[in-house]
């Protein structure tokens, strides 16, 4: 009866990254790092996992001679995020009714 929570999204840091990206057009790695308080290493790993799942697009380029990584959510990512939130609502509704 329950929709299983997407394991890619049901992880604190990955969910935080997706939540940040869902409401903007694109954001730099440094911005995401600052808002999530994550370490660069851990964030890199999680961003890579989201990219492999096809949920985000990662662009690396040079801006004023500095490397810059930009992340952007994909349509597949938006759909996954919406499904995840819907599944969460199911869990919460059942929890609420059970009280």
């Amino acid at each position: 009866m329950f929709t299983e929570l997407d394991p890619i999204l049901h992880s604190q840091l990955r969910l935080a990254v997706m939540s940040l990206l869902i409401s903007v057009k694109e954001a730099e790695f440094t911005f995401i790092k600052e808002k999530t308080n994550a370490t660069a290493g851990n964030l890199s790993v999680q961003v890579q996992k989201l990219r492999e799942a096809g949920y985000i697009e990662v662009t690396k380029q040079f801006k004023d001679n500095y490397p810059q990584t930009t992340c952007k959510v994909t349509p597949k990512g938006v759909e996954a995020f919406e499904n995840y939130v819907r599944a969460l609502q199911q869990y919460l509704q059942v929890g609420g009714n059970g009280k």
Binding site: S11, L15, S19, S23, N42, V85
Partner: peptide, 19 residues
């Protein structure tokens, strides 16, 4: 760490705070 278990309510709070 990413593997820490968290409840649906915590998920929702996290989404809200990030947005």
């Amino acid at each position: 760490t990413e593997e820490k278990e968290f409840s649906p309510q915590q998920s929702l709070d996290l989404i809200r705070s990030m947005i």
